[in-house]
């Protein structure tokens, strides 16, 4: 262990937690005070206003998969390929994000079962640098797809991202065609690819693997779109329509198949997989 790691681990911010263990949390939408334990037990959905809170990879995997799933190893990618620096170094931003998150980057995948049916589930975590898509996210997405191809099972991806990771420049953009190579392979192999769009899913993630599913499920109220609302407002110089780019709006415009409450998500996925996935070979 280097001296730096030692010092860092001794500092209080290095406690890797997905949710703060404050006793009370305030619902960001209705501002109601919620008892943390109840909020967690309610799958991070506000019991009063149905606000679907943003959740990390571990919580999501735990909610969707049966017990005993296997986390897929995080792929090794070249870090900070551009030696990018804005007001901070990208390498420092990565360090800070890792200190605050149990995972190495914004995409975590696992192989397991959903109500008994085999599936690979990939989860994008908005809490890690806004879920942004860089090489680590692209590689993890592809490795998880490869696992589904190998196991001949469904691939479920829960998206959440501000977009591409600017600090990786063009290489982040190149993750769009890269991920699409794998969604095409799933299609050719006859394996279902199901996308769960969670809040928020925007930019290059929406414009690639998030919109290429056989079935698109959105969580209630999730912001989903290509361009950011401020950019659109600056372009058109007019008020945006009510509910613009929200899950229900996309449903109305035919971009998602269904808007599903988090409490029904697991059962909905299991049912879809049952319809679409190839029958399991008898053991």
């Amino acid at each position: 262990m280097s001296w730096l790691t030692r010092v860092r681990n001794a500092l209080p911010f290095s406690n890797k937690r997905e949710t703060p263990d404050n006793l009370w949390v305030k619902c960001p939408r209705c501002h109601d005070m919620l008892f943390s334990k109840e909020y967690e037990a309610n799958l991070y959905v506000c019991p009063r206003c149905e606000y679907h809170g943003r959740i990390g990879a571990d919580a999501r995997l735990g909610q969707l998969l049966d017990e005993g799933f296997e986390l897929l190893p995080a792929p090794q990618v070249r870090e900070d390929p551009l030696k990018f620096r804005d007001t901070k170094r990208y390498s420092d931003r990565l360090k800070a994000a890792r200190a605050a998150n149990p995972h190495n980057d914004a995409f975590t995948a696992a192989f397991g079962r959903i109500e008994g049916l085999p599936a690979v589930v990939g989860v994008q975590d908005f809490g890690f640098m806004a879920g942004s898509m860089g090489m680590a996210v692209g590689d993890a997405f592809c490795a998880a797809a490869a696992k589904a191809l190998q196991e001949r099972c469904a691939y479920v991806v829960v998206t959440a991202a501000g977009g591409a990771r600017m600090q990786e420049g063009i290489l982040s953009l190149m993750q769009m065609p890269k991920a699409t190579v794998m969604t095409r392979r799933l299609k050719e192999a006859g394996l279902p690819y199901i996308v769960v769009l969670s809040d928020p899913t925007t930019g290059g993630v929406t414009a690639s693997y998030a919109m290429l599913g056989d079935v698109h499920i959105a969580e209630p109220g999730a912001l989903i779109g290509f361009a950011g609302q401020r950019v659109i407002q600056d372009t058109i110089r007019a008020q945006l329509p009510e509910g613009f780019q929200r899950a229900e709006y996309l449903h109305k415009h035919g971009m998602v198949d269904m808007v599903v409450n988090r409490h029904q998500l697991r059962a909905t996925l299991a049912n879809l997989i049952d319809y679409l996935a190839p029958a399991e070979a008898a053991a």
Binding site: M176, V181, R184, A207, F226
Partner: peptide, 26 residues
């Protein structure tokens, strides 16, 4: 860049881009 506008979003700008990328790769 692709047009950032209300109608473009309504008609699925993201989906159109994703499918166009897919069409190249196919």
């Amino acid at each position: 860049g692709a047009f950032p506008g209300v109608e473009a979003e309504e008609r699925g700008q993201a989906e159109a881009i994703a499918r166009s990328t897919e069409a190249c790769l196919a």
